Simulated scan of single mutants.
Amino acid sequence: MTPLQRLTATLNGEPTDRIPVFCNLLDQGAQELGMSLEQYYAKGANVAEGQLRMQRKYGYDNVWSLFYVGKEAELLGCRKILFAEDGPPNVEHFVIQDYGDIERLEVPDDIAALPAFAETAECLRILRAEVGGKVPICAYLTASMTLPALLMGMDKWMELLLTGPVELRDLLLEKCSLFFRRQAAAYRAAGADVLLYSNPFGSTYFVGMKRFQALSLPWMEKDLLPDGVDDVVYYCGSAPFNNVIEQVRERLGIRVYYLGPEDDVAEGKRLVGGQGMACGVINDIKLLRWSTDEICAEVRRIVEAGKPGGRFLFGTVVMPYAIPEGKIRAMLGAAFEYGKF
Rank of each mutant, 00 (worst) to 15 (best):
T120L: 09
S144H: 15
A139Y: 03
D155Q: 12
K210T: 13
G202D: 08
Y140T: 11
L173K: 05
G202P: 00
A113F: 00
A149C: 09
P148H: 02
E130D: 13
M145F: 10
L196T: 07
T146P: 07
D109A: 12
T120Q: 10
R169L: 08
D155N: 10
S198T: 14
F180S: 03
K175G: 03
D170T: 09
K210M: 04
F206P: 00
G208C: 01
M158Q: 11
P165W: 08
N199A: 14
P226H: 11
W157P: 02
L114H: 07
V166L: 14
A129I: 10
L150M: 15
Y187Q: 08
L151H: 03
D223A: 01
L225Q: 01
L124P: 05
A129K: 15
A116C: 04
G208W: 00
L168Q: 13
W157Y: 11
A185I: 09
A118N: 10
S216V: 04
D230S: 13
D170W: 06
G133Q: 13
T204E: 13
G164M: 07
E167G: 06
A184D: 07
V194D: 00
L195R: 00
S203G: 10
G133I: 15
A116F: 03
R181F: 03
G191N: 08
C123D: 03
S216D: 09
G153M: 13
P115A: 04
R188C: 07
W157D: 02
E174W: 14
A149F: 09
Y140E: 11
P148W: 02
L225H: 03
M145K: 05
F117E: 00
D170I: 11
Y187N: 06
S216P: 07
F212P: 03
A185F: 10
L124C: 06
S198C: 13
E130R: 14
A184G: 07
R211W: 04
D223G: 02
L171R: 10
K156V: 10
P115M: 06
E221F: 09
W219I: 00
L171D: 11
V229D: 09
